[in-house]
Design a protein around this nucleic acid. Sequence first.
DNA 1: TATGAATGAGCATTCATTCAT
DNA 2: TATGAATGAATGCTCATTCAT
Lengths: 206, 206, 206, 206
Amino acid sequence: MGEMPVSKTAAKREARICEILSCAEKHFSNKGFHGAGISGIAADCGISVGHLYHYFGSKDELILAVVKSEMGRQDESITAFEDLSPENLRLEMAELTTAIFSTDAEPFRTVLNFEILAEAQRNPEVAALLQQQDTQMRRRFVTILRRAGIDDPETRTELIFTIFSGLSARALRHPEQERAALLEVIKDVILKILGDKQVASGALSA
Amino acid sequence: MGEMPVSKTAAKREARICEILSCAEKHFSNKGFHGAGISGIAADCGISVGHLYHYFGSKDELILAVVKSEMGRQDESITAFEDLSPENLRLEMAELTTAIFSTDAEPFRTVLNFEILAEAQRNPEVAALLQQQDTQMRRRFVTILRRAGIDDPETRTELIFTIFSGLSARALRHPEQERAALLEVIKDVILKILGDKQVASGALSA
Amino acid sequence: MGEMPVSKTAAKREARICEILSCAEKHFSNKGFHGAGISGIAADCGISVGHLYHYFGSKDELILAVVKSEMGRQDESITAFEDLSPENLRLEMAELTTAIFSTDAEPFRTVLNFEILAEAQRNPEVAALLQQQDTQMRRRFVTILRRAGIDDPETRTELIFTIFSGLSARALRHPEQERAALLEVIKDVILKILGDKQVASGALSA
Amino acid sequence: MGEMPVSKTAAKREARICEILSCAEKHFSNKGFHGAGISGIAADCGISVGHLYHYFGSKDELILAVVKSEMGRQDESITAFEDLSPENLRLEMAELTTAIFSTDAEPFRTVLNFEILAEAQRNPEVAALLQQQDTQMRRRFVTILRRAGIDDPETRTELIFTIFSGLSARALRHPEQERAALLEVIKDVILKILGDKQVASGALSA
DNA sequence: TATGAATGAGCATTCATTCAT
DNA sequence: TATGAATGAATGCTCATTCAT
């Protein structure tokens, strides 16, 4: 069961690719997609430039692969919320509020996050990848909410994704310390969104 | 009255600087800070490379200046909400929800927005500028809300800024057409936030 | 008596030229003739680039002027040895041996010394200046020796100039501390050269 | 016997490096370290600019390598004086006096000589190299003198190095034709220095 | 006399990429 | 699979110099 590598070489190849991706991610995080250079990445991997081109035909291809892997990771981290009881789901999501200001690797915030969004504005392939991945993440999240018996899961998903995306930007624009209050409010909002029967005009009102 | 240029040369100089900034902004938008080249910008301005360096000592200086001007523009566009009656304020803010998906120049979304956020992650000067500007914008918005007689304006400001920041990311990640429903929800949320006496656990609940 | 400036403006002009030369000398010393830039020199003088060109038509002209002034200074410092009694002359010259390892401004050693020699190898104008100045210095020194009643002053001058030139190079190649002994030897050699009736094959032998 | 290159590629690489060094030396001699450009050197070698950087990481590195090779050559040319009989040593050294005014490649004079000395004044790495190499050359020369049975070889070495260094400067400052007499005197001095039992206050006196 | 805007060639350096081995 | 030699265009930046004012 599961896809096991066809041969030993194939396994080695995949490992090598993984290593390159991880090196590339590091460099891209530090210097940006355009600031990082292929040769630096190759050197960091301990392979030659020419050999890197054996695995990735161009820098754009490498960028795309990194973006894809990054999003794979985001997607994966949604798994943590599957199979939670409705109540635990609410609590865990509320906790994310705090995490987003500190951790760099969770669904709504990655170091490469804004780099990717910026790139998406000018690279259609990246944009397509981004949107396709987002669609999938929303779909999974909707399923999670539905399984938890929450009404109108699509809208609530959108709301939550919007708020968390916003938070990740605020972590950069507003890193001061008085934000503790904000976090409390947001937590409450999240709990509301996941707890109320109706979402907005109804649920949020008296 | 009004600030008139001290001298003719100074005026010319300022005009030239403005032109460079505008060209640079265009190039940076299209190719990113690191993708765009000084020589391209200079050529587009109709001046020589060397001469551009007469006005900006380095590319970083130019980037910083563009970021600063960009944020000045964001800040300015808040002015539109000053002097509005409380009710109009609510409606106008709700309208922004739609605008953020279409317009490229308003307080919470600019083409350069993510480029700047990405740059802020590795360039401390940009980060400082970003935070300082955000502080000022929040202060102004708080004043607007307070003048409109809205309770706990600080928290509501944070909430609104968070939501709009999130929306601008969603415009990229989720540009599909079924989002009309989301917009309606967000609009309602904004109206709630600006209309309720209490903010969260209280106001959003029944 | 002596040449007084024709007018106040002329005096001012000369002062300005002096200032430029002194700034240029500083920059050339620090970065070399080719490493230093006109604009840096102008800035250091507190004048505009264009204005510097009012006084010196080109960088080469400025270099030449600095070389000339440098050599003027070397020449001047020979004056110190005129009017010395024969015995004092010997002692003073012997003292120079020590000075050459520490001072940067005396006839046989200047910071710009090697820069000038290197430039002379490729710039004929500098070479000509160098040789002409050296001729004049030798002539003056010969006169000094002759007045002191020293035999064959031409040859002794050559010998002394050679030794001091050599010392200035050794100050760079051999700046260690065990050189005290060398200095004593050289001192003695100088004293010999200036004291013996015959110069070499005779005088230096038993 | 002999050092044979480890592999064919390594040999090729070394040959290429040699070629670059020789081209660089030529350019540096003609225009000075700072006057010569990398692109000119690369073009002269028949390689691309980028490729030159494959071998030398920066211009400074290249300068340093040229200086090093230059000094290697100076050091090597001392070999000619090893294994000479005492008498032949005296004569050969005396002959050098003439050579220094004509040849460009011998221990005490190279075209790049003053360029290097000038650079040493501002580039500590070059200075260090210069001093280290000089120390070694002195050491070797001392051994030569000692083997020839000459007393106090250290002091005599210093004296000779000083005189020859001085001569190489005089070749530039005093290239006129009446110097034949000087040469004779210097020759005698050298012979004395290498022939007398005592060096200075004693040997040079009656 | 004095400014500083303006130029464009030149600088050292890095880039993504190709290719023979 | 793996190397690293090789390219040449492009990078950000500085240069000496000119010129209108």
